[in-house]
Simulated scan of single mutants.
Amino acid sequence: MSCEDEVMKIGKKLEKMISNNSADHGGADDLLNRLKDIPMTLTVLQKTRIGMTVNNFRKAASKDEIVVLSKTLIKSWKKLLSTDSTPSKPDKKEKEREKSSGSPDQSDNNSEMSESMDSQSSQGKTLMRQDSEASLTNDPVRLKCRELLAAALKLDDDTIIPNAQSAIDLGGKIEDAIFLEFKNTEQKYKARIRSRVANLKDKKNPKLKERVIMGLIPPESIAIMTADEMASDEMKQLRAKFTKESIDDHQMAKQEGTVTDLFKCGKCGKKNCTYNQLQTRSSDEPMTTFVFCMECGNRWKFC
């Protein structure tokens, strides 16, 4: 079994423990110690996303030894990220050797070409930076909204997300996209900002923040997403269940009621209704009539 396969296998077991609320049960420390012994690489970290799994496991655990072991693993893996992001400096001796090699004419030509290429490269980088960064602003309302979005996108110290984008840059881009839509900082703009902040800070929906930080959801998309689109998978399933139950109740009311034109709907004025009678009071009292309008869905009680 390869290193990557073994890490994936351990990750699935940890996720299963989290979902079953058994993070402190036996075997958890063995799995974490196995991860500690595996020669981890940055590629394996990125492919398996084991860092996020261990961090979620740490939050679900209550035993101190398991929390400490999880933190130790995360800190050791963070060193791989910092090592990979550090650019290697060219050797000065090699530079001098390259400059001294070749004829004077060739050296001059080479230096001119390299200066020209460097100039073009810097211009290209400047253009790319201008395209990708948010626009500059001195508006105090916009600056405050960018701060709120950046704070909502900020990761915990123990959370590892490979290739994570800067929370400050992302906050600026999201705010910029929202401002471009409304062209002002009035009520609708502020409501949109508050909605993004609340959903990004929702601890029951951590995947939304992770997907934004990893670039899976661009700033322009999160700026216009609806509440249903930003909701967690569990919330989407719950809403679908409630919608189905509501439809079933509506259909049942249509099917089970007795059709009549004796009642007039106070909402739409039509007489296309159904009714049911139930004994809701004492036996010597008359029955209560529940009326349902087939036209607009209005319900009322007729005593």
Results as ranks from 00 to 15, higher is better:
residue 1 M to Y: 00
residue 7 V to C: 05
residue 8 M to Q: 11
residue 12 K to T: 06
residue 13 K to Q: 15
residue 14 L to A: 13
residue 15 E to H: 00
residue 18 I to V: 13
residue 23 A to M: 10
residue 30 D to I: 08
residue 31 L to T: 02
residue 38 I to D: 06
residue 38 I to L: 07
residue 44 V to C: 15
residue 46 Q to E: 13
residue 47 K to F: 00
residue 54 V to L: 05
residue 56 N to D: 01
residue 58 R to I: 05
residue 59 K to W: 01
residue 63 K to S: 11
residue 66 I to R: 09
residue 68 V to T: 12
residue 84 D to M: 06
residue 94 E to H: 01
residue 102 G to N: 10
residue 105 D to L: 12
residue 110 N to S: 08
residue 113 M to C: 10
residue 116 S to H: 11
residue 124 G to W: 05
residue 129 R to L: 04
residue 132 S to W: 11
residue 135 S to D: 07
residue 142 R to E: 14
residue 142 R to M: 15
residue 144 K to W: 03
residue 155 L to P: 06
residue 157 D to V: 00
residue 160 I to A: 03
residue 169 D to W: 02
residue 172 G to L: 11
residue 173 K to T: 11
residue 176 D to G: 02
residue 182 F to D: 08
residue 183 K to I: 00
residue 188 K to A: 14
residue 189 Y to V: 00
residue 191 A to R: 07
residue 200 L to E: 03
residue 200 L to W: 03
residue 221 S to E: 14
residue 244 K to D: 08
residue 245 E to N: 11
residue 246 S to H: 09
residue 251 Q to E: 12
residue 265 C to E: 03
residue 272 N to H: 11
residue 272 N to T: 13
residue 288 T to A: 12
residue 289 T to S: 04
residue 291 V to P: 09
residue 297 G to D: 00
residue 298 N to I: 03
residue 300 W to F: 14
residue 303 C to Q: 09
